[in-house]
Design a protein around this nucleic acid. Structure first.
Lengths: 216, 216
DNA sequence: ATGGCGCAAGTGTGATCACAACGCGCGGCG
DNA sequence: CGCCGCGCGTTGTGATCACACTTGCGCCAT
């Protein structure tokens, strides 16, 4: 089965390829909550055997991105309100810290890139593109947090994003279209002003605003 | 990641058994940093084939408990000072929140159990039992945080403990023996008094005190 | 004696197979 | 007409095997 393409000199291990593919799909909300997955189906889709598919699925289950029934059947989880509230609180805790650490290192080039991404968000919002909205919104946050130089914290934040992925799409349906970049502008303003309390409040508000209606 | 699920009457799968065995060993500091592991060796030790051993190892690598070289060789990681500082900050963020959420639900039976565990800590400390100290100390924190009714946060905290596991033992060697339960007593006192700011400070101090000397 | 080279043992990866458990649908019975 | 039981297809699990790659050790040439 490993006959098709081997162009690169570095070996991109199959299970990692499957893992990344599924991971971005889940994080971007391309899989509905409650959807079932099968190892053979995944293997067929990615042109690998069951072994790499099983490893990728187990890894995602371990990270909370997928849930596994007692019989081993795998599906995307449907989160309870309590769990959504918890994950929102975790986002607030970690991302406020990441933003605070990124603040002293945020120079003008970063702020301009954030503004560019924010414009892209406005575009996908006007196009009713749910997946594009989630992806671009996460890109905004990741771009800011990369400046914090805190890989372990960023990994934790991405794990939380991953767990919230499938429900994000459901959230998008109820979300008012126009208020998407509202707190993003506050974040950018606080970055420009070097206002740390304002930045913390803006990030916390941005993270909490959408999730509150799902949890409450 | 989810440790709360009961296996019920079903036979626990082999890879999960290997995973839990390795996980507790790593978290308790029973494996030195930099030690190498082989899939066939693990399989031989747990009397399973390579397949469950590989899954368990990959899962631990995904959680940051083990590190994998470019050739796929697996060993326990040796953390940099920056990473230790990050993980300590994460502990502070998450565990302070967990303690704060546990405070309104903490009744007398819980406080008594914490005092019992604290006495056990004093015992193992006097016996120079590093592994026992780490295990009992984690039991103290877990017992408190279980009252927060926040499984996602607790899972995050345990992931951080897991990553710090191999270096915890190295920390224990430099640690003053007598000051171990010092902040624990402050935690218990704050719980008794219902003093939330005091509790937050005590937990933050307890989490940060030992790790600061490793990171700085 | 020492440094480079090649072979052999060992390791991770992925495919395939045998097996047990679960789910679902069909058919018979009340 | 409805309900229960059973059999087949499907799924996850774990063992085994073939293969590519790394590693480390010994041997030969300088």
């Amino acid at each position: 089965m490993q006959t098709a393409t081997r162009p690169a000199e570095t070996t991109p291990s199959a299970h990692d390829c499957v893992y990344r593919g599924l991971r971005t799909r889940i994080m971007h909300g391309q899989i509905a909550p409650g959807a079932a997955l099968t190892l053979r189906g995944i293997g067929r889709e990615f042109d690998v055997s069951m072994t790499p598919a099983r490893e990728a699925v187990h890894r995602l289950v371990a990270e909370g991105a997928l849930s596994m029934s007692s019989s081993g059947r795998v599906s995307t989880p449907e989160l309870s309100h309590e769990r959504i509230e918890e994950l929102a609180a975790l986002r607030a805790l970690i991302e406020v810290e990441l933003a605070s650490r990124a603040l002293p290192r945020a120079h003008m080039a970063l702020i301009e890139r954030l503004q560019t991404i924010n414009q892209a968000i406005a575009d996908v919002v006007s196009n009713r593109d749910a997946v594009g909205y989630i992806r671009t919104n996460l890109e905004f946050h990741r771009t800011l947090y990369l400046r914090a130089q805190a890989p372990a914290m960023l990994a934790m934040a991405e794990t939380v994003w991953l767990q919230l992925g499938p429900t994000m799409r459901a959230l998008y349906g109820r979300l008012r279209r126009s208020d998407a970049p509202q707190y993003h502008r506050l974040i950018i303003a606080a970055l420009k002003a070097g206002d740390e309390p304002g930045l913390r409040l803006a990030v916390r508000s941005d993270v909490t605003q959408g999730l509150r209606m799902l949890a409450g």
